[in-house]
Design a protein around this nucleic acid. Sequence first.
DNA 1: ACCAAAATTAAGGTAAAAGTAAGGCAGGCG
DNA 2: CGCCTGCCTTACTTTTACCTTAATTTTGGT
Lengths: 239, 239
Amino acid sequence: MKTIFESKLLVVDDEPEILIMVKKILNQAGYFQVVTAENCQQARDFFDSEKPQCVILDVMLPDGDGFSLMQELRRKANVPMLFLSARDEDENRLLGLGLGADDYITKPFLPRELVLRLSGILRRVYQPMLLQPNREECLILGAVTINFNSGIVKTGAGEKTLTAKEHALLKKLWENQGNIVTADSLCRSAWDDDLYGYENTLMVHIRRLREKIEADPSKPQYLLTIRGMGYKLAKERNR
Amino acid sequence: MKTIFESKLLVVDDEPEILIMVKKILNQAGYFQVVTAENCQQARDFFDSEKPQCVILDVMLPDGDGFSLMQELRRKANVPMLFLSARDEDENRLLGLGLGADDYITKPFLPRELVLRLSGILRRVYQPMLLQPNREECLILGAVTINFNSGIVKTGAGEKTLTAKEHALLKKLWENQGNIVTADSLCRSAWDDDLYGYENTLMVHIRRLREKIEADPSKPQYLLTIRGMGYKLAKERNR
DNA sequence: ACCAAAATTAAGGTAAAAGTAAGGCAGGCG
DNA sequence: CGCCTGCCTTACTTTTACCTTAATTTTGGT
């Protein structure tokens, strides 16, 4: 299962500063891979080529209006769409919601609110059945059990505790279990800003993780290296 | 599956006039069967007996707060929950959304907006199958399945893993499945700059790919050579 | 039958990743 | 306030998996 955390997200707005701001907010949240467009035409092109899992769009665009664009894009793929609007006009808000927008956010908005509303929608849309807040967040790999709530790794031998970085990295891998996760993507989810020289830092952390979850860290069975591509948390015991 | 039109909806608020108003609005909209509660205890009882498909609740309740109530109810059944709040306080809104509320509406609100937001959420939650989220990037060739997310090739015999170059080449071929792809075009998509003496390097990689996806690499059925032109990934099994 | 294009094979090179150890920094505690 | 402890980062060496090269063989079209 893919998670919302690899979601590609298309943001359409004609104000560059808004694009930059939204992109920054969402990159910090680390959940989304953001693509931006400044007008309807760009949006159409990106929508076709990038196949985003969600769209945020302004009501006013230089070459058309957001309402029509939403309807047009929705015909191609029914992904969630959120409006961003400069003015808080009741009429527009009702129109947007009436046309099936998943939310309607007014500028200026709180960065965190944007992230929360967005992840709420994505969570509902893409994992509707899985939603069990407070569920025990456990990853089971053969004889090893990792509890993300407590950060404890239980092996046959005994218990170990995950450090903050290990926790973040392993969670990201878990969220994409079975799929290849790039080093870049891992770093972005575990570090706030860019990590210089991360090539190695990441590896050291991977190594520590392996020491905690693998029987033989030199011959990993779960946390696998995909040379030239990234890392992967195997779904099943490997071999 | 139940449609949204038969949805039972639990509204929890301690102000009777709000309850009456919401009930009236929603009954007029005609979509919902509304059940009301004035405090946490009633809400719990109704929740258990009526099993509503959605809950709207106030933040302030006489015998507890809406946040805790939401978490408690959600543990029982993961239905969408919306907050209604008297004051528009950023902090509370962020808290509510952060705890997983599906929306947070401030009093006073537009009747129509409540209906629209509610039906939007219900539509998303209860008809999620309309979406095709993150479709699995899979190529199926007869008995062989290639998953590009995990980089795994599954055959009747077992599983093999694609290397970075193989991954890039096969993806390019897949994108042009059924059409001839020139050697040059393949190289450009798998290598950064020009590859000198690639004629052969490419062939070696093609060979390796065939070993992974073909039953008999010497008699390819899918990854075909078009002499003098390039390669082609067959759409159907080639005799 | 001839020739060019493509396939095959195996060996060697190389960059990516692993491994190791030491230094640095922050948070907790006396 | 300063020491201590644990975690994170850096720098460097070693290993290895993948890629490339090169030399030979096979194939298919004319």
